[in-house]
Every structure is written in C-alpha cells, then in structure tokens.
Amino acid sequence: MSSPVLDVQGLAYAYPDGHQALYGVDVHVHQGERVALLGPNGAGKTTLVLHLNGILTAGAGTVTVSGLPVTKQNVQEVRRRVGVVFQDPDDQLFMPSVRDDVAFGPANLGLKGQVLEDRVRDALDRVGMGDYIDRPPHHLSFGQRRRVAVATVLAMEPEILVLDEPSSNLDPASRRELADILRSLDVTVLMVTHDLPYALELCPRSVVLSDGVIVADGATYDILTDDALMAAHRLELPFGFDPRTVRLPSAG
C-alpha cells in the first residue's frame, strides 16, 4: 500500500488538569478509504480529532499527514490538508451568509476573486446546497446547516475529511441525504461516531477507540458482529438492528 494519508503513531495526551485521555494511539488511513472511528462516550474520540489538525499537540507520539508531521511550524498546511467538520454546525458557521462561510477557509489560504468564487460554488454544489449561497446560515434547517458545514471544509480541498458525529441530531431523511453526499465525494474520510448502523453503511473499515487506546481495527462488519468485543467496550447496536441481515448499498 501507498504511504497513508493519515498516520498516527503512539499518540498520548493528557489534559492540562492531568486527566489522561489518550494512551498511545495508532491509526492509519489510506488514500480513498472511508474509515469509522468508533467508541463510547468519553473514549477520547474528540481529543484524537483535535490532534489531527494540530489544535492540540501530542504529549508523546506523532501525527503525520501525507508525510508532513503535525508540528507548530506547518500547522497552517496541516489544516488545509485535514478538514474537520465539527459536531454542532452552529459552531462552524459564523459568517453572515453561506457564501462567506464557505469562502472563509479558502480565503485564509489566500484565494481571491473568481478562483475563490468558483471554489465556493463547487463546494456547495457537491453538497447540493448551491441554491442557498446567499442565505444567512441560521435560517437553514439543521440538516442543511450540517451540509454547509461539510462544504466549508470541502472548499479547502482537504486530503482527508474528518467528521465528528456527522449523523447526530439529524432526522432520518437528512441522515440519508448526508450519507448519499458523503458516498458521492471523492475524498478520504475519517468518521468519528457511535452511530453504528451509519458506520456500517458508509465505512468498510472501522477502528475502535476505548479508554484512550485502539482496541480493534478491521472490517466494520466483522467488528459489529464480534459480540464479545462490542460488549467489552460499551458499543451497542440500536434495538432491532442486526448487521448480519442488512443489505448494504453497493460499495462506493
């Protein structure tokens, strides 16, 4: 296999108050893969995400993005390469119009004029929100806001898209629409979630983070059907959901 887009090795981190969140995490994601990062609440998922684009700096271990180590010096380039979509779109959309919000990232990269405008339109079209370009974000529905949040990051043309709980608070229709969009995008995705059916639907491979270490890494189907593993790490399938009987949409 080629060198991974995202390579996390031995990552450990303790918060300033002494609480240790990560104890030596190893994760790698290759070009074009869609990987789910599963884990119960408090497993350290969000802490891990904040390391991927250099918001937090590793206590020990390394994070490398397409061969570039995440350090203070190249944090700007790392943030272009790693696009993080946060859980609450209200945190991510802070500009007066959808256009300005999507333009914010690429404008920080120095894009201007027509190039910038094209980037914005292209990113919005990819999430099916092109018609809403002049609307203020807070007038959109929650599902629409989440899609615009994805576009704000796509506009930076990242090498890997990191989504924190992409399906949370979405109604089933918005959830499916977002899944269709994510499947249609031609980017590498790391999806942090405890929505196991969503992981199975979208990600052929899963990594399980529990108590600050990676406890499993393999095919999503194999992980979800490993009852002992699931029970040991507080991962539970929703009532009535059995991965063995699900017919998956053709792998994208």
Binding site: D91, A103, F104, G105, A107
Partner: peptide, 22 residues
C-alpha cells in the same frame, strides 16, 4: 468552540476577504 472551528480552517487573527458582504 467557534474559535476552534475557525482555527481549523486556517484563521490566524484577521478576517480574510471573502469577496462579497464583508
């Protein structure tokens, strides 16, 4: 959290020129 999200998209302290409304 908004500040984190801004930094994640390359914010360095000055608002970039996004073309239209600002």
């Amino acid at each position: 959290r908004v500040h984190l999200a801004m930094m994640s998209r390359g914010y360095t302290g000055t608002m970039p020129d996004t073309g239209r409304t600002k």
